[in-house]
């Protein structure tokens, strides 16, 4: 006699993902409210409605948008320059041993230094203007991306290169038609890590003194114990981060769907 195990879906499996999302949001909201009305927590956390009020006030009088605009500009410019520079550097490192041997130790070394530590150098070199902030973000995101992409270039399956060569491909064809597509997953992973490190560095970069920017807004508000504005700034940065992440994930699905995946 064989016993058939019926996989009866239990209650938890039946809840669809969007509902989980709502459950998660409501839980966080309740927790936040509880903390913000408590005596100790209230000092740190403004209540949700205070934050919403702040958002409406700052949004309607127009003071919020320049903060967001400047921050986005810095993150995106720094990141894009980093991205555009990191790709050729990563390929050169993957392709030519001497370049790799000279550059890699330094990239690894600098990558592990928090940007906050070398900001003074950049301020002295580039002043406190937009340039300095973009440079800091550029360096941070460049380093992360170059390391990731170059790992990808190194990992390109050599049999694929051989296969291309025996089909008549020369170096240039191999680069364009094999190495680049084979590294696309790493380029996109690099972009995701680069964006996240650009955002992380943003607040630090804006501490160098800025009249506008989310980091600056948070910084200034904390001086007045305006915790609602601090929280608002934090939330906006979080939302920007997750949106950028989702965008890159979307690209990954579109561009690297050919990859073998485990499970699913």
């Amino acid at each position: 006699m064989s016993v058939q195990k019926r996989n009866k879906p239990n209650f938890i499996d039946l809840i669809p993902n969007p509902v989980w999302m709502i459950i998660s949001l409501v839980t966080a909201f309740l927790l936040w409210t509880l903390i913000s009305v408590s005596e100790k927590g209230g000092v740190v956390f403004a209540t949700p409605w205070e934050v919403v009020e702040k958002l409406i006030a700052k949004g309607s009088d127009g003071t919020l948008w320049p903060h967001i605009g400047f921050s986005l500009f810095r993150v995106i410019t720094g990141f894009l320059i980093g991205f555009v520079v990191s790709i050729p550097v990563a390929f050169l490192m993957g392709w030519y041993q001497p370049i790799r041997n000279v550059l890699e130790p330094w990239i690894q070394f600098i990558r592990n230094i928090p940007p906050l530590a070398y900001i003074p150098l950049i301020i002295v070199g580039a002043g406190v203007g937009e340039q300095a902030k973009v440079i800091v973000i550029f360096i941070a995101s460049f380093l992360v991306m170059v390391v990731t992409i170059y790992q990808g270039v190194l990992n390109v399956d050599t049999t694929l290169i051989k296969a291309a060569r025996v089909l008549g491909a020369k170096d240039r064809n191999i680069f364009i038609r094999v190495v680049i597509p084979a590294s696309t997953p790493f380029i996109l992973t690099g972009a995701r890590l680069g964006l996240s490190s650009a955002l992380t560095t943003l607040v630090a970069a804006e501490l160098t003194g800025a009249s506008k920017g989310l980091g600056m807004m948070i910084q200034k508000a904390s001086g007045y114990y305006d915790m609602a504005t601090v929280l608002l700034g934090i939330f906006i940065i979080g939302i920007i981060g997750i949106s950028m992440e989702k965008f890159v994930q979307f690209l990954e699905r579109r561009l690297t769907g050919w990859q073998e995946t485990i499970g699913r």
Binding site: T159, A163, T184
Partner: peptide, 14 residues
């Protein structure tokens, strides 16, 4: 000279 490899060596993105 065409080559067929043991590991197929197809370009997975094509």
């Amino acid at each position: 000279r065409g080559v067929v490899f043991q590991q197929y060596a197809l370009f997975p993105w094509l």
